[in-house]
């Protein structure tokens, strides 16, 4: 058996707001193997996004351990986490989170800039990633000149251009219609099956979760069910 890509044990996260403590995540244990496609479901406010942000090293847990690719996240400083996000993780968000007033090509180039890759190579890689998403005709479009499905495909291209070991998607189909949703899921399916990309995906929709090979349920900050 290969080592898990992602190994979480006894993880807690609480928010304190106006003196009230909200237990967003309680005692989470979770392993994800390379090449898995995991869906996390759960009612609103159950802590899905919180978990996703911790998985993506955008936030740190209060207690518990988290190892990504054998590296202990809880011991890292801001710069190391930034480098890790850049190298190991690709994000896809519900609202796309493309850089405003910045062309598709430049959006996809951005993670490569922070990876310290030279201009020519950056251009070429970003272009290839966009072409892979069938967006070769939209290189110089600004985010507000793209449809929802196209914007999400730009976001996926941007997430994958650094060849991360983990793709994190927080309701990637939340802002698009059913047809586009099916198109995006087919894309993620293909990436998982053909390229062995590890995907952790958050969704409300049973239909979307059906694409995953393992489904987890979060309720009140606890992982309840694994199928």
């Amino acid at each position: 058996m290969t080592a898990p890509l992602l190994q979480i044990h006894g993880l807690h996260k609480a928010y304190v707001l106006d003196g009230v403590t909200i237990q967003a995540l309680r005692d989470i244990d979770l392993n994800v193997e390379p090449g898995e496609f995991v869906a996390i479901m759960g009612p609103s406010g159950s802590g899905k996004s919180t978990l996703m942000h911790i998985l993506g090293c955008l936030d740190v847990p209060d207690t518990g351990s988290y190892q990504l690719n054998g590296q202990d996240i809880t011991r890292m400083d801001g710069n190391q986490l930034a480098a890790l996000r850049n190298r190991e993780i690709g994000f896809v968000f519900q609202n796309f989170n493309l850089l405003p007033r910045t062309s598709a090509l430049e959006n996809v180039e951005t993670p490569l800039i922070y990876a310290g890759i030279g201009k020519a190579e950056r251009r070429q890689k970003a272009r290839a990633a966009l072409e892979h998403m069938a967006l070769g005709e939209r290189l110089y479009h600004l985010p507000n000149q793209l449809s929802g499905g196209q914007a999400q495909r730009v976001a996926i291209a941007r997430a994958l251009v650094t060849h991360p070991s983990l793709l994190l998607a927080d309701e990637p189909t939340g802002n698009v219609d059913t047809a586009t949703s099916a198109e995006i899921m087919a894309l993620l399916d293909a990436l998982n099956r053909q390229e062995g990309l590890t995907i952790v995906l958050i969704t409300h929709e049973q239909e979307v979760a059906g694409h995953a090979r393992r489904r987890l349920l979060l309720r009140d900050g606890r992982l309840e069910l694994q199928t």
């Binding site: 801001g78 710069n79 996000r85 190298r87 994000f91 989170n97 951005t110 993670p111 922070y114 650094t162």
Partner: peptide, 16 residues
């Protein structure tokens, strides 16, 4: 601020 957040998610360090 939101743009800064996106950049950080993509791997921008503090000094960047």
């Amino acid at each position: 601020t939101h743009e800064i957040g996106i950049r950080m998610a993509l791997g921008a360090r503090q000094r960047d």
